[in-house]
Structure formats: C-alpha cells, structure tokens
Design a protein around this nucleic acid. Structure first.
Lengths: 214, 214
DNA sequence: AACTAGGGTTACCGCAAGTAACAAGCATCA
DNA sequence: TGATGCTTGTTACTTGCGGTAACCCTAGTT
C-alpha cells in the first residue's frame, strides 16, 4: 500500500471519470436530460455497470455533470460581477453573461434547470426544497454574498441580501427562459429592460388613464 | 346520434373525468409528482387503461391536473391584482397571495413547478422553451397584460411589460422556492423585502466601504 | 505457478408506462 | 325478441429503463 501508488491509481480513476463525464456531456447535449444510462455508456464505449461504479446512480452522474457546468457558469458570472465599472454596468454585464451562456448552449441550460425528479419510488417522504435547480440556489447564494459584501442596507442587511440574491436570480432565470423560447427582442434590449426593472422604473411609472394604477 | 343524448354522454364523461382528476390529486398530494399511474388508478378505484382512455398518456393527465391548480391560483392572483388599493399595496398583496398558496400546499406547488420532462425517448429533436413550468409562463403573461394595461411606460410599453411580467414572476418564484425550503423569515418580511427590491432600493442603496460598490 | 486488484461484460430483477384483447351492462333498431 | 353497437371496465402483456449480481480476464506481485 504505497502512497505514491495509491495516488497513481487515484489519478487514473479521476482521468477515467473525466472521460466518462465528457461522454455523458455529449449525449446530454444531443438527447437532452432524458438521456439513458445505456446511451451514455455506449457513447463512452463501455457498459452501464462502470458508470454505476463511478457515480453510484443516475443522480450522482447528473450531479457531477451539473457541477461542472454550474462551476463554469458561476466563474464567468463572478468575473462580470467583479469588473471595474459602476453598479448598473456591472448588473447589466452579469445579466448579459448569463443570457449569453444560456443562449449559446440551450441544451446544457435545460439540463441544469430541469434535472427531472430526485425522489426514489421507494422513498415515501420527500421534502420540498432540495429540488428546484441547484444551479438557481447556488447562483442566488452567490449573488447574496456579493450584495451583502458591497451594499450598505442598514439593519437586516444580511436577510435582505439573501432575499434579493434569490429574487434577482429568479428574475433573470424566468425572463431568460421565456426569452429563449420566444426571442421577442435582442439580448441587449432584454438586459436593459431587466436592469430598468431593478432600478425602480416600475414604481416610478405613471398610471394609464382609467381606473387606479397597477 | 341525438344531440341531447350526446350531450348527456358528454356530461357523464366529464363528471367521470373530474372524479378521476380528484383521485389523481389526492395521490399526487400524498406521493408527489412521481406518483405512478397504477397508484392513481387504484386510488380512483379503477385500473390503468381507463386513465389512458381519458387522458391519453401521463403527460395528458398531468397537464389536466396542472391546469386545474394553475387556474385556481391565477384566479386568486387576479383578485389580489384587482383589489382597490395603491400600486405598492397591490404588489404586496399579490406576492403574499402567491406565497401563501405555495406555503399551504407545497406538494401541489412542487408538482406544478417540476412536471418532470416533456420529451419522448423517440423524439430526437426537442425544443427548449415549451418546458419550464407552464405555470410560470402563464403567470408571466398574465402579469404582463396587467402591467401593459395599467402602466404608461412610453414607447415600447408592450415589450417592456412582457419582460417585466416574466421577470417579476420569476423573482417571486425563486425567492418563494428558496424561502419555502429554508424559512429564514416570516412571509410578511419576505413580501416586504421583495417589494423593496422592485421599488428600486437596490439602485438607491449606498456602497459599503472598500472597493467600488456593486 | 498461484493470487489478488481493477476494469470490463453478460444476464438478470423490479417497476412503471403504455397497449392489446377480451368481457360485461345497456341502449337502439330490425 | 334478438342482433348491433357503444361505453365502461378488466386481465395480461410488451417494452424500456434504472440498478445489480455474478462472472471474466489481464497485469503485476511474490
């Protein structure tokens, strides 16, 4: 049981794991989230049990796959969030980064957002919360910490920052999802409209004639 | 082929359909979205093929089920949106109505939001967009029309209203989902925080010391 | 040569979706 | 009266996927 040897094996396993993930990636990109384990195994040039040895179950594989993409996306979002510019410009850059990402690889996006269930047929109880897309949660928390770090919101900053983090991410996500489906306007227009919303233009807008305003 | 007779049969079929939906509802409420067709049929006191005769496939049943709840929720949201009060109060009432609904029946909420896929293994192509939760889309469109009707946003109102509709709904949804999982604060606090966000407090907030503001 | 470790495969189980094919109850029509 | 059809229901099957058990084979160690 030599240490270097053990490390060597570890490395080999890790490399294999990465290869498998890349194969899985190709299949998911082609077939969507409902890609079967058989298909993924075939793409990787092997058979099912190996996948199960590496990832435990389908959820494990999908989680690993999701983590890769999520990490990548979060990195680029962080970059946009940290750019040297004023607040509005940064917000717009962040929105644009996100939208560009989902625009570039819709299949990946769909896979990340709709991992399709997470409860076993055997498990009777299942708790609401863990689900939804983990990506959304992570982005929300990430944004929350950024807001909390950089904004002065008086007492209750922490709570407020978290609510806003998740809220803004949700806004971005839903608008992006809709936009991706209908393409009613350019990306830049969408970004601008959303930033306007965050900048309070909703509250500032005037009523239309007839009846009390919204 | 008498008309009245045909109507009679139609009515009978509709009643049966409603009964089946109610049974399905109970099962989904108990077992979550991964409830099996067998279980639903058993709950209704019948067997699978009848369900398939009425709803085509599982997707059909789920769509019918989702429509019921979605309609109900949309009705209460419309009521909140139409209440006689000023804009901020209405927004808060609407947020609160939504949150109260998901708080009261988390299982239903989860079912509506994560219908679990929509693509057949046979269909090779599948387009991003149709998916996501139809509920989100419907709420977004609904809110968009309300905004467009009541707010004067100058040229481009229509586009802006739709973006905002979907964006606000997404904000509400993501924040609600997170809140439901962690319960970090009271419903009222959440509502207030979200309304503050929409009222531009993000843009108005001061920077914290050190580095440029968010 | 004998033994063990990993990477690999075949062949299977269980279970859920979906589909014939068949069996009443009950009206209508010759 | 009986034959005809339509709706309602059933049993029994097929297919396909997630997941697993049992076995195989090659390489390196002693």
């Amino acid at each position: 049981m030599d240490t270097t040897q053990r490390t060597e094996q570890q490395r080999s396993a890790d490399r294999r794991r990465r290869e498998l993930l890349e194969a899985a990636d190709r299949v998911v990109l082609r077939d969507g989230p409902q890609a079967s384990m058989n298909a993924i195994a075939a793409e990787a040039g092997i058979t099912k049990p190996i996948l199960y040895r590496h990832f435990g179950d389908k959820g494990g594989l999908y989680a690993a796959l999701a983590k890769r993409h999520t990490d990548a996306l979060l990195d680029s979002l962080r970059a946009a969030l940290d750019a040297p510019a004023d607040r509005r410009e940064r917000v717009e850059a962040t929105l644009d980064t996100y939208l560009a990402a989902i625009e570039a690889r819709p299949q990946v996006y769909r896979f990340l957002m709709h991992p399709a269930e997470g409860g076993q047929p055997g498990d009777p109880g299942f708790d609401v919360g863990k689900h939804s897309a983990p990506l959304l949660r992570r982005m929300g928390e990430e944004l929350a910490t950024v807001i909390e770090e950089r904004l002065d919101l008086g007492p209750g900053t922490q709570q407020l920052a978290r609510v806003w983090g998740h809220g803004i991410v949700g806004m971005m996500h839903a608008a992006g999802d809709w936009w991706l489906g209908e393409r009613p306007c350019s990306r830049a227009e969408l970004v601008h409209s959303l930033a306007d919303l965050l900048w309070g233009r909703l509250a500032a807008a005037g009523d239309r004639m007839g009846g009390p305003g919204f």
